[in-house]
Amino acid sequence: MNVNTPVDVPAVRAIITDILELDDDELTGTSLFIEDHGADSLGAIEILSRIEKELGVVIPQDALVKLVHLDAVLDVLATAERRTP
């Protein structure tokens, strides 16, 4: 089932800025995690993992490669499934 409630954008921003250790104004919708913010492949997995855990959703592992910037994360989240306990 899809998430019908709107994506909690501030929560997603907070997770990403925490993991990439950025000030909030450094992260734009399209600033690239790897190229612009020095993240590596583990950083993307950490973002995926924390969002899954804190927002209670499941993101398919193959979406990992799409998680290049904030807007892309929000796009993936728009179709993510809720976790089933």
Binding site: L42, E46, S49, K53
Partner: peptide, 8 residues
Amino acid sequence: DVMPSRIP
């Protein structure tokens, strides 16, 4: 649900 940053 383990900590990815600790994996290395």
